[in-house]
Amino acid sequence: MKKLLSLAALAMLAGCTTSNEPSSSVSLTPVGFDALAGWDREDFASLLPVLRQECHRLTQLPPETPLGGAETLPYGRQVGDWSGACAGLESAADAKSYLQTWFQPYEIDTKAFYTGYFEPQIEASLTREGPYQTPLYGRPADLVRAKATNGQMVTGRWENGQFKPYYDRAQIDGGALAGRGLEIAWLKSPVDLFFLQIQGSGRLILPDGSQIRAGYDGKNGQPYVPLGRVLVQDNELAPSAVSMESIRAWLEAHPDRMMAMMERNPNYVFFRKDTGSLAQGATGAFGVPLTAGRSVAIDRSIVPFATPLWVETKLPDAKGQPAPWQHLVFAQDIGTDIKGAGRADLFTGWGAFAQYVAGNLHENGRMVILLPRPPADSPTP
C-alpha cells in the first residue's frame, strides 16, 4: 500500500504518500534492452496477464492520481503517464516486443539489495478454544489518521479531545483491546502472530482443514523495529546468522523472554478477513493480487506503483546455494522496512519453499527500472 489526491482516491491506493512527505531523488542511467543480462531468456508469455491486470487497475484511477516515484524520474509518476502503454497493450500479442516498444530501461545507479517475503500458513480457529489463545485483531474503530501541526499525517486515537499515539505492542499484549469484539481469529502462538504481522497477510488453516486469508488492514503508527537488529545488538545472534528461521528459533527457545523481546518492536498490524481467491496471492498495496516471483514491495518515494523492474541477483535454490536469478518484476506493494533506491522485497508465494526462499534471501544485485514512454516517443517495434 499525493498531491491533490482526494480521500477517496487515497483509500483506493492504500499506502499512498501525501503531498506533505519529502520528495526523493535517484540517479538513473538510460540503457538498452541488450544491456539486461538474461533478457532474451525471460519467460515473456507469463508477463502479459500481469501487465493487463496492472492496466485494468490503472484504468480505475483518475489520470492525475500519483503513483509515487522520485522527482527525478523523467516519466511514469502519474496514472495518465501510462495511457499510451496501456492502450498499446490492448493489441499486444508478444510481451517482449510490447515492452521494448513502450518502455525505456534506466539503471538505478546504486547497488541493489533484495530480500523476500511470503504468505505464511498458520493454524487458527475462529473461536477461542484449546491451544488457540492468541487473538488476531481486526482494525479498531478508534484508530484514525490525522494531520499534525507540521502538516504530516499521523496515526493515533482521540482521548478527551486530545490526539494521542495509538497503543503499542506491549499495551495491546497487555489487554488494551480485549473485550471489544475485535478478534477475527485465534492463533496457537504469539510468535505466529508476530511473523504474520511482519509478512502483512497470511492463510489461516482452520481445524476442519479449510482456509481463509487474513489481509492487512492497518497498523498502529508506532515505529517498526527489526527484531533481528535488536538480537544482534544484544549479542544474541551474529549478524551473519539473522534470518526469519533464526529469529523464530531464538524466540521459541526463550519462552520466558519471548514476549518482552517481541515488544521491543512497538509496531502492531491489524487484519481483516480477505475474501479474495486463494489461488492468487493477497492483494498488495497497489490494489492487485500479488504474483509469486513477479511482485515486489518497493519504496514508493523512489519507484512508482505498477512499474516493471528488471532484477539481476541470486536466490537460494533447493540445496541452499545462491543461484543466478534474472527476471522482470512489478512494483505492486510496499513494506515498512523497504527504504531507499535499489531496495526491493520479492514476494515468493506461499508454502514451505516460499518461506525458505523468503527467509534466506539477502542478496545484492542490479536493478533496472522500466518507465513507460510518452505516446509520441514510442518507437515502431
Rank of each mutant, 00 (worst) to 15 (best):
G76D: 12
G15W: 07
R257Y: 01
M244N: 03
P131H: 09
V269M: 05
L99Y: 05
A146G: 06
Y132L: 05
R41I: 00
G175P: 09
A148V: 05
D94N: 15
Y75K: 02
F271W: 04
G138D: 06
F330W: 12
F305L: 14
G138C: 06
Q100V: 02
F271R: 00
Q53Y: 01
E119P: 00
A141D: 12
T291G: 04
G38F: 07
P30C: 12
Q211K: 13
I108Q: 08
M259Y: 03
D317W: 09
S210V: 11
R213M: 07
L89W: 03
E90A: 13
L227Y: 07
T115H: 06
G276Y: 12
F163S: 03
Q100S: 07
A9N: 13
S189P: 04
E252K: 15
V232Y: 03
K219G: 07
L28K: 08
P379S: 04
Q60C: 09
P223L: 14
Q211F: 06
D234L: 15
Q162E: 15
G179N: 05
V26W: 02
V232F: 10
G351H: 04
T307S: 14
A238Q: 15
A11D: 11
A285D: 06
D317E: 10
Q332C: 03
L346K: 11
P140M: 04
A8E: 09
A148P: 01
Y98F: 15
G156F: 07
R157A: 11
V31K: 04
L126P: 01
G181C: 03
V31F: 08
D299P: 12
T380V: 14
A146I: 13
L309H: 01
Y167K: 03
T29S: 11
D274F: 10
F113S: 00
Q233F: 06
L187S: 06
P74L: 11
S83V: 10
L361Y: 01
T101E: 14
F33E: 11
I302S: 03
V144P: 00
P190R: 15
D34A: 11
N265V: 13
V357T: 12
A93F: 09
A306L: 13
Q233T: 15
A37G: 09
E42W: 08
L370R: 06
K188Y: 07
D109S: 12
V368T: 14
Y98E: 07
V296T: 03
L328Y: 04
N150Y: 12
P135R: 08
S91P: 00
S83Q: 15
D317M: 10
Q321E: 15
A45V: 12
G349K: 09
D208A: 06
V26R: 02
F194N: 04
C55G: 01
R213L: 07
P322V: 09
L10H: 11
